[in-house]
Write a protein that binds this DNA or RNA. Sequence first.
DNA 1: CATCTGACGACCG
DNA 2: GCGGTCGCCAGAT
Length: 113
Amino acid sequence: MNWNPIYVLVKKIPRGRVMTYGQLAKALRLPGGARTAGRAMAASPSDQGVPWHRVVGAGGRLLIREPYASLQRKLLESEGLALAEKRILDFRNYEWNPSEGRRRGVVKKEKRG
DNA sequence: CATCTGACGACCG
DNA sequence: GCGGTCGCCAGAT
């Protein structure tokens, strides 16, 4: 199969969490950087369970264009993420790092006022 | 071969 | 915080 390491890593992103193209590139030391990750994602197979919607631009920006943009928004919202027009709100709380592995790493608790 | 176009990211104003 | 620009690299025309 096309076990592109990018897809392997993307598959590990937990539900309700996201990673950026740049993070993927950095984690896998992809030559060409984030664009390479983006190119791979654009060609991600739809029948291999790759949660492509969990990959977003730096800062939690939503970069995908229609018609997939709508689908991505829908999927992310269904996983509990709050979205603004062009980005994920409180992106920092959802960003996932492969090192977290099975660590809790869940949402950082907000300071109570 | 020249040029344009991206599922990008860092910078700058 | 937002839009514009530049650097990067592979594919398409």
